[in-house]
Design a protein around this nucleic acid. Sequence first.
DNA 1: GCTGAAAGGAGAATGAG
DNA 2: CTCATTCTCCTTTCAGC
Lengths: 154, 154
Amino acid sequence: MNELDSFDLSILKVLQEDSSIHMQALAERVNLSKTPCWRRVKKLEESGYIRKYVALLDHRKLGLSVMAYVQVSMKDHDLNTLQVFLDFVEQSPYILDCHATAGNFDYVMKVIAADTEELENFLMRELLSSGVIQSTNTNLILRQKKSTTELPVK
Amino acid sequence: MNELDSFDLSILKVLQEDSSIHMQALAERVNLSKTPCWRRVKKLEESGYIRKYVALLDHRKLGLSVMAYVQVSMKDHDLNTLQVFLDFVEQSPYILDCHATAGNFDYVMKVIAADTEELENFLMRELLSSGVIQSTNTNLILRQKKSTTELPVK
DNA sequence: GCTGAAAGGAGAATGAG
DNA sequence: CTCATTCTCCTTTCAGC
């Protein structure tokens, strides 16, 4: 699948807002009839434009009220140290995002926890005890103003 | 809906991984039969534990290869200035996240764009021209190591 | 390529035990 | 929760534009 036309883009837009929409309603919203609309969706799934369908949960209802950005500097930058760190990141459910950034620190992570105590425990017991971290800098998130999974399509 | 039991938590876990799963398969994975499983899902939707169902897209395939954290300081902190900024944030599709943080800056935003030029344009033309920003600090994301919408359930 | 219709089947939704 | 039933909608195939 090489290029997306405006129909494909419209479909992606709708689905990343609400994937529980029925094929019939989706078709109407993008001005197609059911069959071609369905075919396009399948194509977008197969070609990987649509990675997956997920349910988004309410973190507050789940008792996860503390979020923070944690900047991390590594002790060393050899492959082994890196791998230990990345394995840790992958495995930890508290870490929602982790990116290597240009700047003073090696990585920025977005972390979620039930409360500051759990966050503290995570940072001290789990993260630092992995042995590969030189220093961290934690910025608590005071208020979440916007958080979306919708990419700017079109 | 007050408390979630282990069945509910299992359901949430599965659905935030893959919401395209069929009710039958979901029921089997959480060791329930179809009907009670379906009833629990509906309850979780109605009570707001499940906020929405969405499709996650591949940002690279969509030509969005540049991401950055942009830290922002406001000129003033009166309600009006704040509102102008938040309206701008809400309205801009480039801004995926925006949080008020404890620290030197007022807000941290996660921004996505096609390339550095588009990012630059966004920052200079759109963000700064809103007139309420004092200063910004941009950290390009070099490599995305982990990015998940799955919350630590249970 | 698209539309429209139509058939079949799968799965969602409901009600009773 | 299980069972059984209803019913909606998905999915495919066909025709024709």
